[in-house]
């Protein structure tokens, strides 16, 4: 049964909520203690129409607005669709809220962390049989040529640097480590290699070769991230996964946009 249900939280349309404790629990607490965030004023919404208590967008409202956060329900599971799933962002907290409500949700909060922390992403992908770049962690030295990613609180998995000589490596490392404060992740970048990327929408890489399409499917099985960019190091005919990163809706091709919209569209009244 496809019980699609669409909930859009457009930009500035309020926030996801974490659950209140059971009334009994609150009653047991000492005076002057716990109250709960759910008592905050209700969020405003650009699309206040409700169906079974769940906000649904106006049929004429544009889908895939910038920073749009969509929650669909399919086969009893909630799917959180967003451009990015960075730690401590609205999509991350939307996932966390659903988890604390005890609802089955994809991706899970731990899956998005794992997908966005590059060494963990690569280890998980490797365990699933996907070829991945050899990686290491360093504070300063890096065997050249290499692909470098920051590995700290302020780093983004969407940003990488290719370094081929010591001079550029030194400058790049200084930048991504905040002057040596943090370690970084490096990957070997063999001669005659190039970086290529491909977008996956619900595990489908539109127009990709069968091999990359199978990687997209496998990565969706691991992380369940509806929208992600797969970054590969291509050497000859072989592809090695380098990272997974966010995708802006505006960067989607017509076909990818169509596929995502089809997945978001309500197919059955809730």
């Amino acid at each position: 049964m496809n019980e699609n249900l669409l909930k859009e939280t457009p930009k500035k349309a309020g926030r996801a909520r974490l659950p209140a404790p059971a009334a009994g629990d609150t009653g047991r607490l000492p005076a002057g203690t716990t109250d709960i965030p759910d008592n905050l004023p209700a969020p405003s919404s650009a699309h206040p129409r409700k169906r079974n208590g769940v906000k649904v967008p106006d049929r004429n409202a544009p889908l895939l607005s910038r920073d749009g956060l969509y929650i669909i329900r399919r086969n009893g599971e909630y799917h959180v669709v967003a451009e990015s799933y960075f730690y401590k962002t609205e999509p991350y907290y939307a996932i966390l809220s659903l988890e604390y409500e005890g609802k089955p949700v994809r991706p899970s909060s731990s899956a998005v962390l794992d997908a966005y922390v590059i060494p963990i992403c690569l280890e998980q992908a490797k365990a699933a049989g996907i070829p991945v770049c050899e990686w290491g962690i360093s504070q300063a030295y890096v065997p050249l040529p290499a692909v470098l990613y920051g590995l700290n609180y302020f780093a983004s998995n969407a940003e990488y640097e290719i370094v081929t000589d010591n001079e550029s490596a030194k400058e790049t490392i200084r930048h991504i480590t905040n002057n040596g404060k943090y370690p970084f992740c490096f990957q070997k970048f063999p001669e005659n290699s190039e970086i290529c990327s491909c977008t996956a929408v619900f595990g489908t890489a539109v127009g990709a070769c069968s091999r990359v399409a199978s990687y997209a499917e496998a990565l969706y099985k691991i992380f369940s991230i509806p929208l992600m960019r797969m970054v590969f190091v291509r050497t000859g005919d072989s592809y090695a996964l380098s990272s997974l990163s966010p995708v802006r809706y505006s960067e989607l091709t017509e076909e990818e946009r169509g596929l995502l919209s089809a997945n978001l569209a309500p197919q059955e009244s809730p």
Partner: peptide
């Protein structure tokens, strides 16, 4: 946010706590 949510769910005594989104 995660930690307090978990504590609240288990009925652990906390000071009055609210989560505030940038949208709020």
């Amino acid at each position: 946010v995660n930690m307090y949510s978990r504590l609240l769910r288990k009925g652990i005594a906390l000071p009055k706590t609210a989560f505030l989104s940038k949208n709020d």
